[in-house]
Design a protein around this nucleic acid. Structure first.
Lengths: 232, 232
DNA sequence: ACCTGAACACCGTTCAAGT
DNA sequence: ACCTGAACACCGTTCAAGT
């Protein structure tokens, strides 16, 4: 092998000006995610974004799982909307809309959210706003927690379904093979499924069913309130 | 190297009696899943369960993703409950309960469901039963689809949350580090979160919030019905 | 203390060669 | 036609060695 004639053009990658930080790593992960998607997000890609070796990341984050945790919280930064603080129903709906919109606005955010369990500095104000709004309805603590669980599962579930439908629809055509090929012999056995299959696999939109579910949950809370204080 | 003195004791793994089949592969995948969990489910493990090389599987399934699809449908076999077919509300609730129970009864089923999009022979009757019951409410087709979407997302979302909470709680202690360590300085900034954090991270149970959400959705359908035929 | 270079175990997938 | 054996690319993670 001949020695390279060029000096140190692509040289030993001169040391970085400063040390790595967790925040820098998380921000780089967010860039990779937005640009290449979750399937391309890995420790080597994040390291390359920072012009660093993958092993260097482990000095600052414990594992890939922890990075995902930190990343998800990062994606939810400044998501809490301005609230009027008067009508709890309005606020609960506003937070749900903001949360859902953010999940859909950050590429593959719902795929990361799945393994997510910890509460970071960006998720905390969002959760607090939701719990506070639910509390202003007059519900007791146990009922607030129940309603919150149902509400947050609904918001995340809907965003996940919408995101994965959008991904599927955007496939190069042919990759979409995995989409339900309903079998002809089911026409008679499963008439309701047969009749509605197209509408289900290519829904007109997600706003309407989202609003339907959200309204139903809010109405459910109102009914519970009415039941708990029977007379006035 | 000396020749082995033992004859064909652990010999060339005598050929299988019959050819592999898709059904056999899916069943083996289900066995591995139940015994070792989703993290240990991979092509080599499924192949080993069948005493076959991993590459052999690709003659019968296109990819790991397709195997997951087939596996999920397999896990939902015979899940459709006996329905009275009279009151749609009762039936919608019964199907939701059966669906949720099955998701929770099959180890890591909710983790597979996430990528799931195709409709197999076991999912078809379940979906048909749900759509049929919703249709018996008197809703129009567009509304049936909306209600179904909200309903199925709620059922799957709840089962996912319950399963992942159960997994987390079952960790050897110490692995649970990823559970939200709320920061002390949040006590004042996020009082609602602070007050309810314990109840949220260690919910008393999932039956109650599940029933709450399900009732709310059914009540939401009733309200829509009432709105669409104002007088009788 | 922090990062590099090299390695290890693991996993989905392909492919030529056997039967 | 189906399966084996071997390989490839890839990924999370570890660790001794450099600075």
């Amino acid at each position: 092998m001949a020695l390279s004639l060029r000096p140190a053009a692509s040289a030993p990658a001169r040391r970085r000006a400063a040390f790595l930080t967790r925040a820098e790593i998380v921000a780089a992960a967010a860039v990779v995610l937005e640009r290449e998607g979750y399937d391309a997000l890995n420790m080597r890609a994040v390291a390359a974004e920072l012009r660093v070796q993958a092993a260097a990341l482990y000095r600052h984050v414990a594992s890939r799982a922890e990075l995902d945790d930190l990343l998800f919280d990062h994606l939810m930064a400044d998501c809490t909307p301005q609230l009027q603080g008067l009508d709890w129903r309005v606020d609960v709906a506003a937070i749900a809309d903001a949360w859902r919109s953010r999940l859909l606005a950050r590429r593959d955010a719902t795929r990361i959210a799945l393994g997510q369990v910890s509460v970071g500095p960006n998720l905390a104000p969002l959760m607090d706003a939701a719990l506070d709004a639910l509390g202003r309805s007059g519900l007791g603590d146990a009922d607030i927690v129940e309603a919150y669980q149902a509400w947050v599962i609904f918001v995340h579930g809907f965003a996940s379904a919408e995101a994965s439908h959008r991904d599927l629809a955007a496939r190069p055509q042919g990759e979409g093979l995995r989409i339900a090929p309903l079998r002809p012999e089911w026409a008679k056995a499963y008439p309701a499924l047969w009749r509605l299959a197209d509408a289900i696999s290519a829904p007109a939109g997600f706003e309407a069913p989202f609003a339907f579910g959200l309204d139903a949950l809010i109405a459910g809370i109102e009914r519970r309130l009415a039941a708990s204080r029977p007379a006035r």
